Computed example of a mutant assay.
Amino acid sequence: MANTGDQPWQRVPIDPQSVDAPLSRAAVFLVVTVSDTPEALATAKDVLSGMTDLVKTVGFRDLGARLSCNVGIGFDLWRRLTDSPPPRELHPFREIVGPVHTAVSTPGDLLFHIRAERGDFTFEFERQLLDGLGDAVQVVDEVTGFRYFDARDLLGFVDGTANPAGGDMAGATTVGDEDPEHAGGSYVVVQKYLHDLSSWNRLPVPSQEGVIGRTKVENIELPDAEHGQKSHKTLATIVDETGVEHEILRDNMPFGRPGQAEFGTYFIGYSRALWVIERMLERMFVGDPEGSYDRILDFSTAATGSTFFAPTRSFLESLGD
């Protein structure tokens, strides 16, 4: 076959990962760093190129478990892993310092977002995945999430109500012609929030509803405040200068260990444009207007913060060439 001069990432067809998979009953969020040695990088490439086969290997036992795993690659690893230019907006998570609260930036080369209807499947997949990676990686964060009643967080409110649906999903989450070399991929931001449930539960329900912007039981959207403090729902809604609203896909999951007084929400947002999530976080932590930050942060502390890009399946497979 004649050499066209094209690089592997320029020849592969668009084949998105399972970003649009429905909310699962179980999930694992695994963030690792990759050692800076040729052997470690070779191992990482080999494992990433075989992700589709690993999903099949574990998932065949019960196809109804709907096992999937999305892989996100951080900016620093991207430059070490491949000669492909990084996605246009990809960069390390930028710390956001507000008047009271901070969105911290924490390390992360690879994100594995593992989902299934059964917790034993997410467990087995993670076990085999880490066996394959071996000492090439170091685990920096590992969270096991679960569906809580009717998709509520541990604060008691339904989470993810504003997610795009149907035909709007791809437009909100998938890079297109604006970055053709990375079309079909998605930007991913993750944060682990730890809740002070004791303080939250002392807050009267009407006050909780004012913080969130929805009723607690019925999940009915409340009107936006015309003056003063804006709700979490309002601050997390991004409208550009032309009046166009930009959506992201949230696949948040609650997690916790009551014996350790640990209760939290793992935020994961997929977006076609990284600036959308960044502006959302700036509005939450800095405030709109500045100083009027999201009051949910008085009860929920961001313990981690990392940014990744989830390339196409074909891109991952090409790493093994």
Rank of each mutant, 00 (worst) to 15 (best):
S24I: 07
A183H: 02
P204C: 05
C69H: 07
S314G: 08
A172T: 04
V28T: 14
V286P: 12
E262K: 13
L281H: 11
M169T: 11
K192E: 15
R115L: 12
T301P: 09
L110K: 00
P85W: 12
E247G: 02
N252W: 09
T102P: 07
V158L: 11
I114E: 01
V34H: 02
A303T: 09
D168A: 10
D6Q: 14
K192S: 15
I73W: 09
G171D: 09
G64P: 04
A21R: 13
T312S: 15
T161G: 05
Q191N: 12
D298E: 09
P289H: 00
N252D: 14
P164R: 08
V58H: 04
A303D: 13
G160H: 00
T57C: 09
L194A: 15
R118W: 12
D321N: 09
Y148M: 14
T43R: 04
A273H: 09
Y193C: 14
P85L: 01
R115P: 12
F75I: 11
P8C: 03
I96Y: 02
E278Y: 08
A103L: 15
F60D: 15
Y148S: 10
V12S: 07
P180L: 00
F267N: 04
A273C: 09
E247D: 08
L194G: 13
E209I: 00
E221A: 12
H195C: 06
S300W: 11
P164W: 08
K233T: 01
V71F: 07
A162E: 04
P99W: 03
V244K: 02
E178I: 10
F315G: 00
W78N: 05
P22Y: 02
P99Q: 07
P22Q: 03
P164M: 05
M169G: 00
G64E: 14
P86L: 02
